[in-house]
């Protein structure tokens, strides 16, 4: 068809101001939440959990902006597909981590520690944590 949307129609509805205000309020609350979580001393040791919380909040905020401010919730199926495509394809990049996660599995003959301080090490240093800084 000339346009899939002629029939779905482009009847963009003007949303009430209240909706925008509510979304903005939610965004500010979420921002305060993410700052607050970052300040809680008890949580600071749990790096992974903390990252998940921070990113979870950021994704929620982003979703709110995309759905309401950018109006994707009210737009055509095609627009929705493109939005999904863009955000999901971004994660395709992280396929790269198959490499970085498994580099430490293989013993490399002749690998000595001399250059580890300068070059990107093959071994994962995440587990060493803060010990190596002492």
């Amino acid at each position: 068809m000339a346009s899939d949307s002629t029939h779905l129609s482009h009847n963009h509805h003007v949303q009430p101001v209240g909706m925008y205000m509510k979304v903005f309020g939610a965004l500010v609350v979420l921002m305060v939440a993410t700052i607050a979580v970052a300040q809680v001393e008890a949580l600071k040791e749990y790096s992974l959990l903390n990252n998940f919380i921070a990113m979870g909040i950021a994704v929620t905020k982003a979703t709110l902006v995309v759905l309401f401010f950018m109006g994707v919730k009210f737009s055509s199926a095609l627009t929705k597909i493109f939005v999904l495509l863009g955000f999901s394809w971004f994660f395709m990049l992280f396929f790269m981590f198959c490499d970085y996660f498994t580099r430490s599995w293989e013993p490399v003959p002749g690998w000595t520690g001399t250059s580890q301080e300068t070059a990107m090490p093959r071994e994962n240093r995440w587990s060493e944590g803060f010990d190596r800084l002492k």
Binding site: S3, S5, T6, L78, T79, F82, V83, W89, F90
Partner: peptide, 22 residues
Amino acid sequence: DYEQQSESYIVGMWAFLVTEIM
């Protein structure tokens, strides 16, 4: 018609934003 045009513009903008995401 106008519908086709405005829909094209918006899809085009989103396609551009997809490139921005990458």
